[in-house]
């Protein structure tokens, strides 16, 4: 067994803070949408806005971190290894095959994760933010040319559709990230402790070569 630090303190803080904010946004957002009436509309709106500003603030910080550390490359999608990982989840996982990917600090996410997270960051999140900010500041742009071109309903449709996309993403993410490790909770644990406990050189680990690695300089 070896213990490798996969998720730095910042990444864990960012992940779990975002998780709390996103669940809060979904809860208050579906209250605003009229899906449930567990909290009043006024409270839901105020909470939704506060949570939204916080998640935006968090992302500004996270983007800064990813750019300055170069860690953003962890999310560049790759097709290499994708079929192998996809086949593993579609078939091999049932017959007890070893996962064809091992997290390392240089390649934290398997190709399927890369694709999913990339989609979340590039499509879902911006769709939610841009439409959300437009909804928040509707009164300012309604009388302008943008208001003439863009009906409020369309903005709201994008926001709601992206929110559904977010729910779909979360269900898949929670299932895959929290239950498909070995033991089943291994990934969840490493997202809490930061460390990944892996058998050294598991069989098939060489397939990691499919996945682009982030180079890093040795710690001083």
């Amino acid at each position: 067994m070896s213990r490798v630090l996969i998720f730095t303190r910042f990444e864990r803080f960012w992940h779990w803070t975002q998780a709390v904010l996103v669940f809060g946004l979904l809860f208050t957002g579906f209250a605003l949408h009229g899906t449930h009436q567990w909290i009043g509309y006024d409270l839901a709106l105020r909470a939704h806005i506060v949570l939204a500003w916080n998640v935006i603030g968090l992302w500004v910080l996270a983007i800064f971190w990813h750019v300055t550390t170069g860690e953003w490359r962890q999310y560049v999608p790759t097709s290499r290894g994708l079929p192998v990982v996809a086949m593993y989840y579609a078939y091999g996982i049932f017959s007890g095959e070893t996962k064809p990917f091992v997290s390392t600090p240089a390649a934290k996410h398997n190709p399927l994760q890369r694709l999913a997270y990339f989609g979340f960051k590039v499509l879902l999140a911006p769709a939610l933010w841009i439409s959300g900010l437009l909804l928040l500041f509707y009164a300012a742009w309604r009388p302008t040319a943008l208001g003439a071109a863009l009906p409020l309903a369309w903005v709201a449709y994008v926001h709601v559709a992206a929110a559904f996309g977010l729910v779909v993403f979360l269900i898949g993410h929670v299932y895959m990230a929290a239950t498909t490790g070995r033991p089943w909770y291994a990934y969840l644990k490493s997202m809490i402790t930061g460390y990944h406990e892996a058998e050294v050189a598991p069989p098939g680990a060489e397939r990691d070569a499919y996945t682009p690695q982030v180079e890093r300089s040795p710690k001083p």
Partner: peptide, 22 residues
């Protein structure tokens, strides 16, 4: 891997104060 060169060299470990700040 085939990932080109130098971007990761500036990698820094996140500091706790950053987390507290946000």
């Amino acid at each position: 891997t085939a990932v080109d060169g130098d971007f990761g060299r500036r990698l820094v470990t996140a500091k706790p104060w950053m987390a507290l700040l946000v």
